[in-house]
Design a protein around this nucleic acid. Structure first.
Lengths: 210, 210
DNA sequence: ATGTTTTCTTAAACTTTCTTAAGGGTTTTT
DNA sequence: AAAAACCCTTAAGAAAGTTTAAGAAAACAT
């Protein structure tokens, strides 16, 4: 056994913001080329923020004010029904973006809640700055269009999976696509994402071990 | 009773292509303003095509070559499983766009089939022309980004509905959102879209009539 | 360490949805 | 006008998924 004093690594590491910018720019460079001046301007529009476990990034009913890029940690977006039961719509980890897009673009009350499953560092850009960014550096709009295209494709695949795959296959597909997430998120959350009860997922897992 | 000779209206009406262009421009004007010259250039990149009932717009395995705007008629996009059963992913009627986006942008074999449920007039633009269009008239890229945002939002809502609503509610939600489609498409197709068997949908409808 | 809370598992009864099979009513084709 | 193909309905039994409730295991807090 290790003594805590030897092994303990604090969760909350205070990376300098500049290194978060580096991460965002590394992501960006996969889609478009920015000149040094453009890159400076680009990151200047983002504000850093850290959320602690269980802290809300967005609450249903509020208006979603920014698009959020995750530098480290894990967020979840979920929908709460009047009955009280809730359904996870998205997990978002490093290099993912999240927002309630309907609320953000139409400036209507959000239907999604977004909160942190771990301590999470993000960079956020406000809608008005996003509009400005698209105007001043049009290729950034291309990047968002491409990101959105990919997100759309992924959602379409998820719809197909939900329509035609039984629970066990949906779970296996989840493991393939989001294996890393499955190891840092409680099982009940995964069940919610997959649209089944935690008890049933447990049963499914048992059956799969043969 | 009417004699056919008095009442018969041919399905296939040959609208002039220019009126189809008008329809596309009317759609476009909801999103962006184009100068007359830009509008001319814009529509010049689209080719008209008519599909007859049951004719394929895209077959799984082929590469999707264009984005398709529907001027009149109705298309469906569906996914066929190895087992032979199939699932409708999208109905597309007047003023809608359709494509297998993954196939179109990544130039990979399509997983979706798209075919006509009625005689359908479309305007199609090839990927290369879409790229050119975005380069020459950047605000068109904005339109596609906004369209995609809305499509993404709709898909997200559909995922939520599939996760949490029982069959009867999903059917009612479908009627609300796509009432016009429900009157021109056979019931079994709607069942496929909703992820249930036609027999069960029939039962659901009977139960709802009380 | 110890007690507390959260998470995971198990099992039985129940509800929802599917499968199969049959019958009747439309259209469409011949 | 008959035959064929298509579409919708009904019903009984089977399978898939949920609910409830209880106990075990792991993580967290003091």
């Amino acid at each position: 056994m290790f003594s805590p004093s030897e092994e303990y690594v604090p969760w909350i590491v205070n990376y300098p913001v500049s290194s978060m910018h580096t991460r965002l720019l590394a992501y960006t460079s996969r889609h478009i080329d920015l000149s040094p001046a453009e890159a400076d301007y680009f990151v200047s529009l983002f504000k850093h923020r850290q959320y602690l476990k269980r802290q809300f990034v967005l609450q249903a009913g509020d208006i979603c004010r920014h698009e959020t890029f995750i530098v480290s940690g894990c967020l979840r977006a979920y929908f709460v029904e009047p009955s009280g039961s809730f359904h996870i719509v998205q997990f978002a980890v490093e290099d993912w973006w999240t927002a309630d897009l309907k609320s953000l673009w139409h400036e209507t009350p959000a239907t999604l809640n977004i909160d942190a499953l771990e301590t999470t560092d993000v960079l956020q850009i406000e809608k008005s700055n996003l509009d400005r960014l698209f105007r001043e550096i049009p290729k950034t709009e291309r990047m968002f269009r491409v990101m959105l295209t990919n997100a759309f494709i992924a959602h379409q695949q998820r719809i197909i999976d939900n329509l035609c795959k039984p629970a066990a296959e949906r779970y296996l597909a989840f493991l393939e696509r989001y294996g890393s997430i499955s190891q840092r998120v409680p099982q009940a959350q995964i069940a919610s994402y997959l649209g089944m009860t935690p008890e049933f997922l447990s049963q499914v897992r048992r059956n799969l071990m043969r």
